[in-house]
């Protein structure tokens, strides 16, 4: 993914509209655009961004059906299989990796740490694993994983800009979309800065053994100039945005418009959540 040449051409995008699309990023990895985004042209990439997002709700609600791991596990397995078959196994991998710390905490707290009256499943010295606790941990982890994989699959297959365009076309405030995109742009930027500062601090051997308050104070001293200058830059960016029509009244267009379709499907998906919710509650 990271070594192909950068090529930017005016072209017709997956939604049938002409625009300039960055086809790849050699030196600027896709992570720069958004941590999740995977460039590709699968059926999932071609689906309308809001259809994918709408599918998150019924899937997540269905995950809560029954009080065992069965339903969420089936949905999860189906999702992973679909992604792998669609050559999007990386998305399944990312979602499961994301779930790892939470799953670990669930298993430790519910399966091992909490005291139970019932007989342990396995006992190994002071550590005993409880079946009921483990089942609760598994069910909870699977339910959350369904939500995580649905969101990840929806968002990893759409460029943030296209996502924002789809929202604006449906009447979401373009100002809100601006704040979202600017925020999304910041994630890799801030992570990079944080890593750089930590590395610099560690390589100089600053206070790595100092007390927590002292380490925090050193960190803040390192960060303050950066943060203060970004606050001072607000005024200039405000003027620059005014100059670029940020406050102009009227409808927004997009260089790469998203073809309007799937409204019925999106509504159906959202409506399908209601019977599923009822089912999840009574089951």
């Amino acid at each position: 993914m990271a070594s192909r040449a950068r090529r930017v051409v005016p072209q017709t995008d997956q939604h049938g509209h002409t625009g300039v699309v960055e086809t790849d990023t050699a030196t600027w990895s896709p992570a720069r655009v958004a941590e999740l985004y995977e460039i590709g042209n699968t059926w999932l990439h071609r689906a309308h961004p809001l259809t994918k997002l709408a599918a998150v709700l019924p899937l997540s609600v269905a995950g809560f059906a029954g009080d065992t791991v069965l339903v969420p596990a089936i949905i999860l397995a189906a999702a992973v299989l679909t992604l792998v078959v669609s050559r999007l196994g990386i998305i399944a991998l990312k979602s499961l990796r994301l779930m790892a710390p939470m799953t670990f905490a669930l298993v430790v707290i519910h399966g091992i740490v909490r005291p139970y009256d019932s007989e342990p499943l396995v006992a190994w010295g002071p550590i005993s694993v409880n079946a009921g606790g483990l089942a609760l941990a598994g069910t909870t982890a699977a339910r959350i994983a369904v939500f995580v994989i649905a969101v990840t699959a929806a968002m990893a297959t759409v460029h943030p800009k296209i996502f924002a365009t789809a929202l604006i076309q449906r009447g979401v405030s373009h100002k809100l979309a601006y704040a979202y995109l600017a925020g999304a742009e910041l994630i890799p930027e801030m992570r990079l800065r944080a890593t750089q500062i930590l590395e610099a601090q560690q390589s100089r051997g600053f206070d790595t053994k100092g007390s927590l308050p002292r380490r925090l104070r050193t960190l803040f001293a390192l960060l303050k100039p950066l943060l203060v200058s970004s606050l001072i830059g607000v005024e200039m960016r405000t003027l620059a945005l005014e100059s670029r029509g940020f406050s102009l009244p009227g409808r927004r267009t997009a260089a790469v418009a998203v073809r309007e379709r799937g409204r019925l499907l999106q509504r159906s998906l959202l409506l399908a959540s209601i019977p599923l919710l009822v089912l999840a509650v009574i089951w």
Binding site: V20, L186, A240, A255
Partner: peptide, 11 residues
């Protein structure tokens, strides 16, 4: 500071 900070290409 005068860039929008919300775009990922010069275009």
């Amino acid at each position: 500071d005068q860039l929008t900070a919300a775009t990922s290409t010069a275009f």
